[in-house]
């Protein structure tokens, strides 16, 4: 459980932690592009774009497919499901907890009304 703390994080959360990487992902969502094609859309340097693509590759969100002389970057969005699952799980925990709080509050209000009537 603690091991991920000491390893270099290479998971989806690491991938989307950086705004440039998020921008690269949304760019690639609509089209496959070469590294140069990606870099043309950004002000940051080509090596910087290349570094981000490398991290996205290591996180499993981007694959690079050689085609002729070119190498195309493609998004693998299924990995992003890990993010929605993560928030979804947490949302459910709170939702169920608060649904129960609703019931407790409902009971309290009923009791209060009964007390008022008694008086």
């Amino acid at each position: 459980m603690v091991t991920y703390m000491t390893n270099i994080r290479r998971d989806v959360f690491q991938a989307i932690a950086d705004p440039n990487r998020r921008a690269i992902l949304s760019l690639l969502a609509n089209q496959r592009l070469t590294l140069n094609g990606v870099a043309d859309n950004f002000r940051i340097s080509r090596p910087a774009v290349s570094r981000h693509i490398k991290i996205l590759k290591e996180c499993g969100l981007v694959v690079v497919i050689p085609q002729g002389r070119e190498r195309y970057c493609e998004v693998r969005f299924d990995r992003l499901a890990e993010v929605t699952d993560w928030v979804e799980q947490y949302r459910q925990m709170w939702e169920q907890r608060f649904d129960r709080l609703d019931q407790v509050l409902l009971e309290l209000q009923k009791k209060e009304q009964q007390n008022v009537r008694k008086k």
Binding site: F13, W86, V87, Q89, Y90, Q92, M93, Q96, R100
Partner: peptide, 17 residues
Amino acid sequence: DGMIQNGMEKGMSEGYE
């Protein structure tokens, strides 16, 4: 991220249901 990902929370939410 780790706190929320850990399996215990998952077990908890199943319990809540």
